[in-house]
Design a binder for these strands. Sequence first.
RNA 1: GUGGGCGUAGCUCAGCUGGUUAGAGCGUCGGGUUGUGGCCCCGGAGGCCGAGGGUUCAAAUCCCUCCGCUCACCCCA
Length: 423
Amino acid sequence: MAIKAVRGFKDILPDESPSRLKIENCAREVFGLCGISEIRTPVLEKTEVFKRGIGEHTDIVEKEMYTFHDRNGESLTLRPEATAGIIRAVVEHKLYGKSPLLKLFTMGPMFRHERPQKGRLRQFHQVNVEYLGSSEPAADAEIIWLAWEILTRLTGPDDLLVEINSLGCPECRPLHRKDLKFYLENNSQDLCEDCQRRMKTNPMRIFDCKNEDCQRNLKFAPVIRHYLCPDCATHLGYVLDILEAYGVPFVQNATLVRGLDYYTRTTFEIISRNLGAQSTVAAGGRYDGLVKLMGGPDVPGVGMAIGVERLLLLLGQQEARQPLDLFIAALGRDARDEAYYWIGHLRRHGIGVEFSFEDKSLKAQMKQADKSGARYCLIIGEQELDDEEAVLRDMRTREQEKIGLDDLPEALVEKISKEKAGE
RNA sequence: GUGGGCGUAGCUCAGCUGGUUAGAGCGUCGGGUUGUGGCCCCGGAGGCCGAGGGUUCAAAUCCCUCCGCUCACCCCA
């Protein structure tokens, strides 16, 4: 039996690479419009980074991390998300001292031991942005705009929906939490098993439950919006105003929640109805408590992540390769020996050239030329060597012209370069 | 971790009420043109029929176990 890749770890085959490149290029371009710098942190961190950053009692940390002991007995973990590692790096290198506002992006693989399904792999990729140092609504709005801009540039806006909510802050959230708990305790008889458990550990999460009975139960449950303190309410209102100014359409979703304590105020998701069960293609929010939690100063933060594989599902397959300029069909040893000089010269001057490594029949080489997508095919055999003129065939029009061997590479460079510049 | 669907050629699939050497389309390679691609025609290569066990004179086909893929639950981006 041949060895197969690990479950949930997928090879990215050549057909898929152009789509990924397109996503990465698009993201980089948009990031450039906002002055965001790239940071690349290791995929492997001390387990402590995620225990502290994500929360010890979350599902991610409790049962989804790739955690193991290295040869020194230290507990290490493949990153399940990017934010914790980035903040670790920012704190470690004291980057917050360089400028009052850090705008950082990163892209790369993340790892979670979940059961694979559509839009969910064990090694998956994210495009991430983190803004550290501003608690202004304009920062939240810019983060959401970034996600929206990248996604719509790539897919069009038709199937995307931005959902926004505010989670409040340490001032107002405890009140909501208390009332919600009270409400649930008096309506707990119809809640499913999971929600019974969540009620104690993480009551806000019950809003995520898909069980119909639970949802019916929650119909009159207190929602955070009615509990927001004046500052949080103003903040949310301002974020929404700015989004309108930017032309980002959105809906408020009072039940959109995050389970972790350090999340504050703005939270959002961008979902698509074309993705199956894993419908979130990007998500993020404000996390004002996190940097301090990670041992840094009390710096506010807001960020987002785009799920690359999910975006890929929306994108479909992109054009596989750039068109080739020239294919050289050389017949016989003498012609090939001559052709190698030309190939070197042409490629040095930016002309794309392919040829057959094998000494095949002209017909076979023409077929290969056709498949290569080459614009021109140069034919050189014994006859052409004798005449000191090679044949250049236009693969589209089938017209052929003769080119003297003397300055052949120079002539081809000029002809093809001129043509490419004119396109 | 739980449940459903599916595993036959590189790909998409047919064959499955058991019965000679397991098929098609696409792809690939070659020929039709002694030196000219796409279309067309002809031909070749390519399969432990997911793995193991069982029933049977006989298993791709029926039964069991395992593995894998996939979708969903769960959770999340």
